[in-house]
């Protein structure tokens, strides 16, 4: 069962083996939001996605579990394309987003 109790901190999901090949083109901008709590990673993404050309990829590195839900949800809400996510060896994820407009 995947439920994680809210009353205690469970260990982060075990660092899965990093996929051998990237799931998309390389990012032109990497935003390091490791150690930052939501909504800060989402604010950083929203502020800085304008720095990459339309059609290009921005990656956000984050380790707040909320980011795992919030980044794809933000992309749906703002009509940006969530391309893929990687699990980082040091914990956390890299979320790859294509700027659509």
């Amino acid at each position: 069962m995947r439920f994680r109790g809210r009353t205690r901190r469970e260990p982060e999901p075990a660092a899965a083996p990093v996929p051998p090949q990237p799931g998309g083109p390389p990012p032109v901008l990497v935003i390091d939001a490791l150690g930052r709590k939501c909504p800060i990673p989402i604010i950083m993404l929203a502020e800085r996605i304008r720095e990459v050309p339309v059609g290009q990829i921005v990656a956000v590195l984050a380790d707040d579990p909320a980011a795992h839900t919030d980044v794809p949800a933000w992309c749906r809400m703002k009509s940006q394309e969530f391309v893929w996510e990687e699990t980082l060896a040091r914990g956390g994820w890299g979320f790859h987003i294509r700027r659509m407009y």
Binding site: R6, R8, R9, E10, P65, D70, A73
Partner: peptide, 23 residues
């Protein structure tokens, strides 16, 4: 939202729905 509970995890309901968990 996660920071409002005595935990660092967001709500399992919002997570399961795949919607924004902050704010």
């Amino acid at each position: 939202s996660s920071c409002t509970a005595d935990t660092l995890r967001p709500s399992h309901v919002l997570e399961a729905m795949g919607v924004i968990t902050h704010g």
